[in-house]
Design a protein around this nucleic acid. Structure first.
Lengths: 111, 111
DNA sequence: GATACACTGAACCAAATGGTTCAGCATCCG
DNA sequence: CGGATGCTGAACCATTTGGTTCAGTGTATC
């Protein structure tokens, strides 16, 4: 058992287009496994696995209601993911800035 | 061959902690495969595979210099990833708002 | 030229992923 | 009650993933 921390599980969950679509669908309101599976032409079992992955990433919560299972978006707003991406952008910008300065310096000493 | 679109490859690339660390390391400046591999106690071949994944996601660019390979951050600022996350957050917020309104309405008609 | 160094490709491996089918088990409906 | 519906667990499968080792190849360095 490798025991991925939450951000790993989250990025991995978001790497699959089917799962991102499911999240977007759930943005319209909760749905059952059957309703989620139908537009993808995928088996119920297959969709249930995707939902499980999303639950593990705490992006989706589910509840058994009668014979159906209602799936809804969880409360996570992906703050950690967004924070990582933003830190990365800032880092990149700094690096490019420093590269720019370097070019600027080099300009004075050609050949 | 499933041929993942770029955003899939990007999320997948970011799902691995080793690869995120490599990106952060490269934020300090470019490095060779050997330099990248060393802190993880991983083989050169292993690190090269990680770098390949990052290259496929266009997060890293590399260049052969003599017998070494210089790896640096590519120019991608993860705009698409950030856009997806932000859209998701907005969607979530709207859904929570509507849920709030629903609670509000229900308040007037108890039992 | 000889030796060391950095990387690379091929082969292999175990585990995870994304999917399937099939056989239940509850639950709902008439 | 009996049938249809909705989900679930187990078993299976092919592919991908994250890692390895080993045997090169090309480049520096003495």
């Amino acid at each position: 058992m490798v025991q991925h921390p939450q951000i790993d599980r989250t990025f991995a969950a978001l790497a699959d287009p089917t799962r991102r679509s499911v999240l977007e669908r759930l943005g319209q309101g909760s749905a059952t496994i059957t309703e989620l599976a139908e537009p993808f032409g995928i088996s119920l079992t297959g969709m249930k696995k995707h939902v499980l992955v999303l639950e593990d990433a705490e992006l989706v919560v589910t509840e058994k209601v009668g014979r159906a299972r209602r799936c809804s978006l969880g409360p996570r707003r992906l703050d950690d993911v967004q924070a990582w991406v933003e830190t990365y952008r800032r880092m990149l910008d700094e690096r490019l800035d420093r590269f720019g300065e370097l070019l600027e310096q080099t300009k004075g000493t050609p050949r």
